[in-house]
């Protein structure tokens, strides 16, 4: 219960900071929308088979925006010793990780809501359905877990903006593949085949949540 309160405190702090400074969500949201609009020109997202490339465009928008947001969040923590303060707090390292992950998921979630709404309107694809939202949720957790771990590491390096995608994209490949495939299957009304992908996402999330929780302490020793 103490851990839950500590996680809440971290999320509250991040939310408060975001409400005052508005450095993350607005930027991420605009970026995600611009990605979707740009994809519209890169691929033909109006044809009959737009579901296949559409889900790809949606996920690229979500992941690029998430990458941007998580990198920004880690950079903000580095300012004026905020991160040291957090580490000195009585919360243990695993709990800090869960707190930072919860904030990241909250911010990415807001951006996703925006992106999904716009996606539905622009491309006339029915993405606002429980199963699609489940896939979006599971994919975001998997992506966010590795992203939170690596963004904290990358933030202390010399080339953090470059390093985060280099670390994250190869390792998040299973999330990319399963999310895009599952979304495509759902958008093309092939619900029967979506099961294995959802299991893969679920397995990925549970496994890497566990590993990240355990190794996070080693990553943030200052």
């Amino acid at each position: 219960m103490i851990a839950a309160r500590q996680i809440y405190a971290i999320v509250r702090k991040d939310l408060l900071l975001e409400l005052r400074a508005r450095e993350q969500v607005v930027g991420m949201g605009v970026f995600a929308l611009l990605t979707l609009v740009t994809f519209n020109f890169a691929f033909d997202l109006t044809g009959a088979d737009r579901a296949a490339s559409g889900s790809g465009a949606l996920w690229v928008a979500i992941m690029f925006a998430g990458l941007l947001g998580m990198g920004r969040a880690a950079a903000i923590e580095r300012q004026q010793g905020a991160w040291e303060g957090l580490l000195l707090s009585p919360a243990d390292r695993g709990t800090i990780f869960l707190g930072k992950l919860a904030s990241a998921l909250l911010f990415i979630g807001i951006v996703e809501a925006l992106a999904l709404a716009l996606f539905t309107a622009l491309f006339a694809l029915p993405v606002l359905r429980p199963m699609v939202l489940l896939v979006v949720g599971l994919g975001t957790v998997g992506f966010g877990t590795l992203g939170t771990l690596f963004s904290v590491m990358a933030a202390t390096t010399r080339a953090r903006e470059v390093l985060l995608p280099v670390l994250l994209f190869p390792l998040a490949l299973p999330v990319v593949i399963s999310s895009v495939r599952a979304t495509t299957l759902l958008l093309t009304e092939r619900q029967a085949e979506v099961g294995p992908w959802i299991s893969l996402l679920l397995g990925f999330d549970v496994l890497f949540l566990g590993i990240a929780y355990l190794v996070f302490g080693h990553a943030v020793e200052e």
């Binding site: 771990l149 085949e193 893969l200 496994l207």
Partner: peptide
């Protein structure tokens, strides 16, 4: 320390990457 973290996460991930890529092709 960072490299060790990446080494652990990466090694666990490789079989999952393989599985996801295989399914991606079979499907």
């Amino acid at each position: 320390r960072y490299a060790a973290v990446l080494g652990i996460v990466g090694f666990v991930d490789v079989p999952i990457i393989h599985m996801s890529v295989r399914w991606w092709r079979t499907l």
